[in-house]
Amino acid sequence: MSGPQVKICGVKDIDTALAAARAGADFLGFVFFRKSPRFILPEKAEEVILDLKEASFEEGFALPKLVGLFVDAGEKELSEAPTLLTHFQFHGHESPERCKELGDEFAVEIIKALPVSVADDVLKAGAFEGATDIILFDAKPPPGAGRPGGHGVSFDWTAISSYTGETPFMLAGGLSPDNVADAVASQKDHSGFLGVDVSSGVETAPGNKSADLIASFISAAKGSK
């Protein structure tokens, strides 16, 4: 499947991981933030990853890149992450220096999430140039929210037009099978656009992913012109 890359975030079990990988997901995200309804224990995530890797070998589908999501995590928490992760995704107050340092220390690529509501928020990505591998522009959480993402809210995608950095970026926030094609189309002329990230938009309840919604989302995203 060609088209933009797709990240399915908040994977909690092997069935979801298999459904996403078989449908053509490019990234799978595992949430190691305890306040999230999508939280998974590191040892459980490792089991899922190993089972997925075995299925990938047996069935012949491509193994997605494997992302661990953290919010202001300490060294102990990061060191407990599954060893097969390819990326760390940071949703907290991690500085560019901290991102670069941790990428080098753990030999992983870094995704830095930046909350967006207006075009000026996008400009903050400039500080992370050279310190991260992917920028994730996510919708700002609602006031009083206890976690930085997964709320199903969106932002004005045209705000991304102010981004001129060389680091590739993904869009997140309020995406679903119904609107992801529009989101992709809104960025078709932006050279830095890498793909889209979804969590709540493919769920039937917080933390409960639907294989049908995942397949529909990936098809809609990658079928966009």
Rank of each mutant, 00 (worst) to 15 (best):
I111E: 01
P115E: 06
K76H: 10
F155W: 09
F155Y: 15
K140M: 13
A139N: 11
S79T: 12
K124G: 00
K112F: 10
L123Q: 12
P148V: 14
G92D: 11
T164M: 12
W157G: 13
R147G: 09
T164S: 13
V108L: 02
T158E: 14
A119V: 12
L114S: 12
T164N: 08
V118P: 00
A107G: 06
E58R: 14
Y163G: 06
K76C: 05
E101G: 00
E80C: 10
P143S: 08
V71Q: 09
L136R: 08
K76V: 13
A159L: 03
K124Y: 01
S56V: 12
F106L: 01
E105G: 01
A145S: 12
V67S: 09
A62K: 14
S56K: 02
G103D: 03
G144E: 09
P64H: 03
G60Y: 04
F70C: 00
F155E: 11
F137G: 06
S56G: 06
P143I: 05
G149E: 07
T164P: 00
K140C: 08
F155H: 08
V122P: 04
R98F: 02
G152D: 03
D120H: 05
S117N: 07
T167G: 13
T132S: 06
G149M: 07
H93A: 15
V122H: 14
A73P: 07
E101W: 00
E54L: 14
F106S: 00
K112R: 15
R98C: 03
F88A: 02
I134W: 11
K76A: 14
S154K: 04
G146H: 02
T132W: 05
P82F: 04
E80H: 09
T83G: 09
E129M: 03
A131W: 00
T167L: 09
K76Y: 00
V108I: 07
G146T: 06
G60I: 08
P96M: 05
A145T: 01
S162M: 10
F57A: 14
T83I: 11
A119Y: 07
E54Q: 13
A55Q: 13
I135P: 15
T158H: 03
F106D: 01
V116C: 01
V153G: 10
F155G: 00
L123T: 11
F137P: 10
H151D: 11
K124Q: 14
D121S: 08
K65Q: 15
L63I: 06
S79H: 05
E54I: 05
E129W: 11
I160K: 04
E129T: 06
S95V: 13
A139I: 07
S56P: 10
P141D: 10
G68C: 04
P142A: 15
T86A: 03
I160Y: 01
D121K: 10
K124N: 09
A139S: 15
T132Q: 05
S79K: 07
I110L: 02
L102Q: 00
D104Y: 10
P142D: 12
S95Y: 04
E105L: 12
G146K: 13
L85W: 04
D138S: 08
S161N: 13
T86G: 04
E75W: 07
E109Y: 05
A159P: 07
C99S: 02
K100F: 13
L114Q: 05
L66Q: 00
E54P: 00
S56A: 14
